Simulated assay, not measured.
Amino acid sequence: MTSADAFRERLLPSAGVHLLSVLAGGAGALAGSYWGGWAAVTVGVVAAVLVSAGLSLTAPVVSVVPTGDPADGAPADAPRLSAGDAVIPLDALGAAEEVDAEGIRRLLGPEADARAYVCHRSWVRSAVRFEVTDERDATPYWLVCTRRPAQLIAATGRREAGA
């Protein structure tokens, strides 16, 4: 296997998603208006900031850690894919497939496998589906949302399915 290129992406919400914060702030202001104007403004601003911060702070990180980085306790020669809180060695992954928004909908709906690992955020409209080839792992595949699917596939050193 060729050495993997480093890849790191935090699945932060887009600016449009942060409009939910404004709606939450408006709802908070409406609720706080019972106690007066200053309370309404204060509650609205606090609600908007909390929702925006919550969306940003809980955004998962997708990364490919190449060889030579034993910082998280893994052997220095074991490159791995990390998506959210889960980590898998690249040796346990098979073919990769770029998935568009419609494919994500299918893989999370009618074609879903309950054993699959999914790192998904609704504001990310593309993903990569990695086949898991480790016989000891009951997980059939990983579905990892990313805004840069081709770069993620390249960083793992995998071939795209059907290529």
Results as ranks from 00 to 15, higher is better:
residue 29 A to Q: 09
residue 117 Y to S: 13
residue 83 A to Y: 01
residue 44 G to R: 00
residue 74 A to S: 05
residue 83 A to D: 10
residue 135 E to A: 14
residue 29 A to W: 10
residue 128 V to P: 00
residue 100 D to T: 07
residue 85 D to T: 11
residue 33 S to Y: 07
residue 70 P to V: 10
residue 14 S to L: 09
residue 15 A to S: 02
residue 133 T to H: 09
residue 116 A to L: 01
residue 117 Y to W: 10
residue 81 L to T: 04
residue 119 C to K: 01
residue 103 G to V: 12
residue 95 A to E: 14
residue 135 E to K: 03
residue 34 Y to Q: 01
residue 110 P to C: 01
residue 51 V to H: 06
residue 137 D to H: 13
residue 73 G to F: 06
residue 32 G to T: 07
residue 98 E to C: 07
residue 58 T to L: 09
residue 86 A to D: 14
residue 64 V to Q: 08
residue 87 V to D: 04
residue 138 A to L: 02
residue 116 A to T: 06
residue 55 L to K: 05
residue 37 G to E: 14
residue 117 Y to H: 15
residue 56 S to Q: 08
residue 142 W to S: 01
residue 123 W to H: 13
residue 101 A to C: 08
residue 63 S to E: 15
residue 58 T to W: 09
residue 80 R to E: 09
residue 86 A to V: 15
residue 49 V to L: 14
residue 114 A to Q: 03
residue 121 R to P: 06
residue 41 V to A: 15
residue 49 V to W: 04
residue 129 R to W: 07
residue 112 A to E: 02
residue 42 T to G: 12
residue 96 A to D: 03
residue 80 R to H: 15
residue 142 W to T: 03
residue 124 V to F: 06
residue 15 A to H: 03
residue 17 V to C: 02
residue 140 P to A: 04
residue 123 W to Y: 11
residue 17 V to G: 00
residue 55 L to Q: 08
residue 57 L to V: 15
residue 28 G to L: 05
residue 128 V to C: 01
residue 144 V to G: 05
residue 37 G to R: 14
residue 19 L to E: 14
residue 109 G to H: 06
residue 102 E to C: 02
residue 14 S to F: 04
residue 144 V to P: 02
residue 59 A to S: 14
residue 116 A to D: 05
residue 54 G to N: 14
residue 82 S to Q: 15
residue 74 A to W: 11
residue 58 T to N: 07
residue 102 E to H: 08
residue 139 T to R: 12
residue 142 W to F: 04
residue 66 P to G: 05
residue 57 L to S: 12
residue 31 A to Q: 06
residue 84 G to F: 07
residue 118 V to A: 09
residue 96 A to I: 05
residue 65 V to C: 05
residue 121 R to H: 11
residue 124 V to N: 04
residue 71 A to R: 12
residue 128 V to M: 02
residue 43 V to M: 14
residue 104 I to C: 05
residue 67 T to P: 00
residue 147 R to L: 05
residue 71 A to D: 10
residue 114 A to R: 02
residue 122 S to T: 13
